[in-house]
Design a binder for these strands. Structure first.
Lengths: 141, 141
DNA sequence: CACGGTTCCTTGAGTGGATCAAGCACCGAT
DNA sequence: ATCGGTGCTTGATCCACTCAAGGAACCGTG
């Protein structure tokens, strides 16, 4: 599942289209992750530690409890995808970095997550700009 | 978390915008669900049983194992949001329907899932049509 | 310096979601 | 009547997520 979804009875064409797109995006992400032996959450974390990051920082970005991050990072660490090192200035804090294995795996993962690139390729340059603008406007941003 | 996500380093403006939108959508869905005491998956199933449905049908739609549906429906049933009844013609099969409580709760949930309506309201009629068309084209559909 | 409040992370317990392997009841066709 | 396939359930196992509690380190104050 791993996919939010709107009842088949979704009202307007736009709402249907939004749902369909979001569903496709989520599904593509999950598929790419599991093709590389990652859970959704693991791929998510792995993607965010390209540069050295603090755990708390991650928890905030991903809107979840710090203990959740601890756990996910621990699993990534047992597979040597990620490395936890002490913060130089603050010994409470620990920093996460991808290992070379992690870099490689994440690179492969990203490559197989084709949906955004395919979507872009299906549009002309003008349409891409238009879509970008409409999405921002839709969110009120 | 419950949110797929692209590294902060997402490449093009369009990819960023797509990600941001999907993230907002997912987040809004989860928030609406948890405001009503539902998990993402529960809201998802509850939304799909407005009319009597078979379990297998649901499993297929939601792309997950049948045993997963069994489990989720069981939890919904203990809260009297859903009711499992025998299929009239095939005694292996069971059909799920929302109870009145389930209807009410799902109605409230949907009402509080404002993102799609807000998004539509932020656009003119012409823009809504344009966005719908662009999303379809992006997915190649 | 010592204290006390705060921050950062971890641990442990508990709930749900997801998948897989087995199994039972039933259907349908031979 | 039997036998393969279907539809659902159970049990086991793993992971994500949350909450409560706690230890270690930081930082300001007196």
């Amino acid at each position: 599942m791993a996919v939010p979804s709107v009842p088949a009875s979704a009202s307007t064409d736009l709402e249907q289209a939004l749902f369909t797109f979001v569903d496709a995006y989520n599904q593509a992400w999950d598929a790419a992750a599991s093709d590389h032996g990652l859970s959704t959450a693991q791929a998510c974390v792995l993607g965010r530690v390209e540069h050295r990051r603090g755990m708390g920082e991650l928890a905030e970005e991903l809107r979840c409890d710090a203990s959740n991050i601890t756990q996910i990072v621990a699993r990534l660490e047992t597979r040597d995808l990620v490395h936890r090192e002490p913060h130089p200035d603050d010994r409470r804090s620990r920093q996460i970095v991808r290992t070379p294995d992690g870099d490689k795996l994440y690179g492969d993962f990203e490559e197989s997550f084709e949906l955004p690139r395919t979507a872009a390729a299906n549009l002309t340059a003008a349409e891409r700009e238009q879509l970008t603008a409409l999405l921002h406007k839709a969110l009120g941003s």
